[in-house]
Structures are given as C-alpha cells and as structure tokens.
Simulated scan of single mutants.
Amino acid sequence: MTDNGGAIALPGLAGRRVAITAGAGGIGLAIARLLAAQGARLAICDVDPDALDTAAAELGAEVALLADVADERPVEVFFRETAARLGGLDALVNNAGIAGPTAGVEEIDLDSWQRCLDVGLTGQFLCTRAAVPMLRAAGGGAIVNMSSAAGRFGYAFRTPYAAAKWGVIGFTQSLAKELGPDDIRVNAILPGIVEGPRIDGVIAARAAQTGVSVEAMRAEYVGRVSLRRMTPPEDVAAMAAFLISDAGRNLSGQSFPVDGNLESL
C-alpha cells in the first residue's frame, strides 16, 4: 500500500499529531514532508522566519512558529499553540541542533560551548518537558530525539557537539525507562554524513582547522562510510516516520544509526 507520493504507507500515521523542532529545513523539513505525505497533522517551529513561512505553506502545517528551543518561553508558547490548534499531541521529534565551533578544546570559548549544549541538549529537555503531559493525555505516543554519529564515536575538534549528542543518548535511554509505563516510546536517531549545506560547512571548517583542501576533506569523510556515499535527509526521515508509526510500537530506548555504516569520525 502506498500514499499518493508513492511512499509506503506506514500504519497509524494518518491523522497523527506531530511536533517537529527545526522543521523548516534540512532533516527536519524532510521528516515533515514525509509525515505530511502520510497524512499526519503537523506543528513545526524554527528560527528562520523565511524558511518557516515557505515550509508552512508547502506542508499545510497547522502550527508554524518562530522558536529557539534553548529559550524556555518560546518553547512554552509553541506547545501551548500546538495543544490549542491540534487538540493534543501524539509524537514529538526533537530535531533542533547546531554544529557548534570547530576548534581545539583550548580555543573554544564558554559561550560557544554553552550555546551548542543549550540548543542540542537542553532544548530537547525543554520540548520534552512541555510535550510529555500532552502525550500522556493522548494515551501514549512517541518521542524521536536526533543525536548523531558523534554520539557514539566522539568527534575531535567538535567537542561541544559531541558532548551534546552523547547527552541525547543518555536522555533518550532514561526517558524510555521513565515514560514506558505511560506507553510513550522514546528512541534516538544517529545520522551520519547527511547531504546538504550543513555538512558542506562542517567539511569546510574541518578542512581549515586541519590545513587540507575542502576536496580532500570531503573525500576523507566519504571514505569513512562503508557504502562510500553520504546519506540523503530523506533516509533519516524514513526512520523517524517508522518510529512514530504503529510499525515501531515495540521499539523504545534504542539508538538507530542511519549512516551507510560510518566506520569512524
């Protein structure tokens, strides 16, 4: 069985109410597009107003608000509006994160370190704290937390990012135990080298840090993947949709790499 776009129709997604942070670009937008195609009802937030307007129009999102997930007040407003307009919540995708600085640990200033953790880890806490009462009221649901391959390998010269993503794994496993009795499933996705402007910037920064060409650094990154290719954001979206759907109803507390078998970072 397929939907109108030709994708496999996953059970239970039609009508499911899903909140997605950083849902107007990159992986978040890919997730939102797939869920919309499957008939889900969407609430998205982002920090880019132009991208948010464009995505909301494309997706038909019922909620589309500017919100920095590291800021408690906008997060509260986003989930209050989600409750009002969607009538509740069935799933949360904690997708927001930033790359953080590329530098040796002795060169990283405290503000840069803190900002990376605030968005990538504390933001997940703030959004989950707001969403859990809504998920309980719905009789259960799913939370998908975006980690990274850096959350299992570590990442030299990217210590704030790696620390945040390792923290997401601990947060995920702890929540799965805590929320399981409420029939709330919590899993993490660990994307690898995902195609798009963000990885282009990461590769350029890493090349500058280590004194090699951008082309050589790109080849080095791809060479660490067993399948010798980057991962399209749509592949990460497919995993998120599966975990939110009824097909993933017995998956919780797990970390799922989507990376072509990335061997190292």
Rank of each mutant, 00 (worst) to 15 (best):
N4M: 10
G5F: 05
G6E: 09
A7L: 11
I8Q: 14
A9M: 12
L10R: 13
L13C: 09
L13M: 11
R17T: 04
R17W: 04
V18E: 01
A22V: 02
L29H: 03
A32Y: 04
A32Q: 06
R33S: 03
A36S: 14
A37N: 13
A37Q: 15
G39Y: 06
R41E: 14
R41T: 07
L42I: 14
C45D: 01
V47M: 13
D53L: 06
T54C: 10
A55E: 08
A57T: 15
L59E: 08
G60L: 07
E62T: 11
E62Y: 02
L65R: 03
L66Q: 09
L66K: 07
A70R: 09
D71T: 08
V75R: 02
V75K: 05
V77G: 03
R80S: 14
E81T: 15
A84H: 05
A84L: 10
A84E: 13
A84C: 00
R85T: 15
L89G: 06
A91S: 09
V93L: 08
N94C: 11
N95H: 01
N95M: 00
A96W: 03
G97Y: 05
A103D: 07
A103G: 04
E106V: 10
E106N: 08
E107Q: 13
I108M: 12
I108V: 15
D109K: 00
L110W: 15
D111I: 12
S112K: 09
R115E: 09
C116Y: 02
L117S: 10
V119K: 04
G120D: 14
G120T: 05
L121Y: 11
Q124Y: 09
C127D: 00
R129G: 11
L135C: 07
A138D: 03
G139N: 03
G139K: 01
G139H: 00
V144L: 08
V144T: 11
N145M: 02
N145E: 05
M146H: 11
M146I: 12
G151P: 05
F153N: 10
Y155H: 12
Y155Q: 10
R158E: 13
R158Y: 08
T159I: 07
Y161A: 01
A162N: 00
A162P: 01
A163G: 08
K165I: 02
W166N: 10
V168W: 10
G170C: 05
F171P: 01
F171M: 13
T172L: 09
Q173W: 01
A176V: 08
A176H: 11
E178A: 14
E178M: 02
G180N: 07
I189N: 12
G192H: 09
I193S: 11
P197F: 01
R206A: 10
R206D: 04
Q209Y: 04
T210D: 10
S213G: 15
S213Y: 03
V214Q: 01
E215Y: 08
R218P: 06
E220V: 00
R224D: 06
S226F: 14
S226N: 11
M230S: 05
E234L: 01
D235R: 14
D235L: 14
D235N: 11
V236Q: 01
A237V: 08
A238I: 11
M239K: 04
A240V: 14
D246P: 01
R249T: 13
L251W: 09
S252Y: 06
S252F: 04
G253C: 12
Q254G: 12
Q254S: 15
S255A: 14
N261V: 13
